[in-house]
Design a protein around this nucleic acid. Structure first.
Length: 267
DNA sequence: CTTACCGCCTGTCGGC
DNA sequence: TGCCGACAGGCGGTAA
């Protein structure tokens, strides 16, 4: 479900809504997620203070002195914030009750999300192969040219590959390629230096703007307090019928995923 | 090593 | 009205 901008939005919302960062009780409601919730998480975090909440790729990391909780929202994962009394909803999986009145409830219809405890985040199996963060200086045209040169993947699959670029998913891949005027099925090693330059800039622009507007809500995504993201109204190709140039937008499957592009604007 | 495909889950929507 | 297949924003594991 959520990509980098949505996870960033949720992360910030959780952090800003906490008054007291001490966990009163971590409660498992239904442990069947992508991986069974294990590792005795309650005993590790009950009574502990969250030092920091941050995003890495599409993961939300709750950092403690002695380790981290690593959560992923999969396709349909949501956190909702409630206060005082918990009323159960279908597909609730766990909740984090803080020592203030906040309770953060994780709900996930399709169960593709996850939560793990790790004493060393960077070495955790879910984190150790994650690629560069696209909103850092290290993600530049030199990096992209170097990596694309060696790849025979379609460029859309390439920029969605978490081992290469962290956090870009199906929506923002389509949007960034539209901005760069590159067709999604172009082979990565066919990109020129200037195309790489353009694509790097486009990815950064799209992600920053989406964060600014609180993410994109196509189906399930909701911010912490149940609101939709406003970037939905700013989309240029994803889910749209017609390009601003007037041309009909194409929706083709690339590796089974819907991929939108304008045949006139993108070459 | 790289790339392609499967399967995990539930809910919704369109076609017949 | 009901049934059935297709599809939905992800990703690790495995096969080729």
């Amino acid at each position: 479900m959520p990509e980098l901008p949505e996870v960033e939005t949720i992360c910030n919302a959780i952090e800003q809504s906490i008054d007291s960062p001490k966990i009163d009780k971590f409660k498992i409601i239904n442990n069947k997620l992508r991986w069974k919730i294990s590792g005795n998480i309650p005993s590790r975090v009950n009574g502990q203070v969250i030092k920091k909440i941050y995003r890495r790729a599409k993961y939300i990391i709750f950092e403690f002195d002695h380790g981290c909780l690593i959560t992923h929202l999969g396709m349909t994962g949501q956190f909702r914030r409630i206060q005082n009394d918990y009323t159960s909803h279908k597909h609730d999986h766990f909740l984090i009750k803080m020592s203030d009145d906040n309770i953060y409830v994780y709900n996930d219809v399709r169960k593709f999300g996850s939560i793990h405890w790790s004493a060393n985040v960077d070495k955790h199996f879910l984190m150790k192969n994650i690629g560069i963060e696209p909103l850092t200086e290290g993600f530049n045209s030199r990096y992209l040219k170097n990596r694309t040169t060696k790849s025979k993947m379609k460029i859309k699959n390439f920029i969605m590959d978490q081992k290469i670029i962290a956090g870009v998913g199906n929506i923002y891949a389509s949007e960034a390629l539209f901005l760069s005027k590159i067709r999604p099925n172009k082979i990565a090693n066919k990109l020129s230096k200037s195309m790489c330059d353009h694509l790097v800039k486009s990815i950064k622009v799209v992600l920053r703007k989406a964060i600014k507007y609180g993410g994109t809500s196509i189906k399930d995504y909701k911010t912490l307090d149940g609101n939709s993201g406003y970037f939905t109204q700013k989309l240029s190709v994803y889910g749209l019928d017609r390009c601003k140039c007037g041309e009909k937008i194409k929706n083709v499957k690339i590796s089974g995923r819907s991929s939108f592009y304008c045949p006139k604007c993108q070459k």
